[in-house]
Amino acid sequence: MSLSRSSAANSAKDTIDIVTGLVLLVLSLVLAFYLIPNYIGEPPILQNPMMSPRWLPNIVSWLMLAFALLLVAQGVLTKTAKEGDERKLVKGPVRRFLVMIAGILVYVFFFEMLGAILSGVLATVLLFLAHPVRTWWAYGFAIALPVGVTLLFVNVMNVPLPLMPF
């Protein structure tokens, strides 16, 4: 299997692990020194330190810190597995990825505004175009399914999805 990024593959370390470990290291430091003291309230009276809402988050953040360090160490010491590394993708065209992102964004931004049907149709068509579906009748699904599934949710399952923009 050919890798698109093979620069680090030859040296005796696992770059991905090192980077992951460093990111998690920073994350755990942020948790321990910023988020936990600032975003978890502590009640004035505590019979036992283990009762504190901060107790478990503190412990977990320190454990994260320790294991992030271990991961960095492990990354420095072990070699990257060259064959069959599931972490790497053979990348396709960027445009396709961007159109997919656009499709997802349609959902998150317009779901309530446009309603389930319109946003469903729009996003599905976008995704069909992204990884081009060339069978024309398949586009019928892009319309029929959002309509059908929405009506199923709303009328049969009693789940009030937003229907229409008006």
Binding site: Y107, G120, F128, V149
Partner: peptide
């Protein structure tokens, strides 16, 4: 290419 857009729709709903 046909399945995943539909799966995404189900996921969102």
């Amino acid at each position: 290419s046909i399945l995943f857009p539909i799966v995404l729709m189900f996921c969102v709903y």
